[in-house]
Every structure is written in C-alpha cells, then in structure tokens.
C-alpha cells in the first residue's frame, strides 16, 4: 500500500512536470515564472527549508517544557 502510494506520488510529480512544459506562463511577472518546473523545486526546497529552520529555531530557543509558565 505504502509502495503504491509512493509510485502514485512520483507519477503525479512527473505528470505535473510534463504539464508544466505543456502549459507555460504566457504573462510572467518575474523570470522564475518562465521556468516550467520552478514550483517543483520551490515546493520541495521551500518545504525542507521551513522544516529545518523552524525546528532549529525551536530547539535552540523557542521550545520550552510545558510547565514553563506555571
């Protein structure tokens, strides 16, 4: 089941990349909007950056024991 879901996800990503080439942005505001698979990289890297930076900030400073304010 897990394997099948993984294949579906990978297949969907590949399909979305192909569609990105088929349907380019005809009115781009910025240079990156001309790249057909920009959001593939942005989504993946952005998500990892959010997780890593947030967790780092949390474990360094922000996260405290639950009775911190008591």
């Amino acid at each position: 089941m897990k394997k099948m879901l993984r294949y579906i996800l990978i297949g969907s990503i590949v399909l979305s990349c192909i569609l990105g080439f088929v349907f380019p942005n005809h009115h781009p505001h910025f240079w990156w909007q001309k790249i057909p698979v920009f959001d593939v990289f942005f989504g993946f890297i952005g998500c990892i950056v959010i997780i890593i930076i947030s967790k780092w900030l949390g474990h360094q400073w922000l996260m405290k024991k639950e009775d911190y304010y008591d």
């Binding site: 979305s16 990105g20 088929v22 990289f41 989504g43 993946f44 998500c47 990892i48 967790k55």
Partner: peptide, 24 residues
C-alpha cells in the same frame, strides 16, 4: 492552466518533502 499546474507542482512536492520528514 499555468496557475493550476504550478499550484499542483507546489503542493505535490510539499507532500513529497513531508513524506521524507514524516518522522520528525
């Protein structure tokens, strides 16, 4: 078509990154 495809790309890859970091 561009808006829809771009958003789907963004969400699918967020899902992929989530899958990788799911235990964290």
């Amino acid at each position: 078509a561009y808006h829809v495809v771009a958003m789907i790309q963004l969400l699918l890859l967020t899902l992929a990154a989530f899958w990788i970091y799911i235990d964290k």
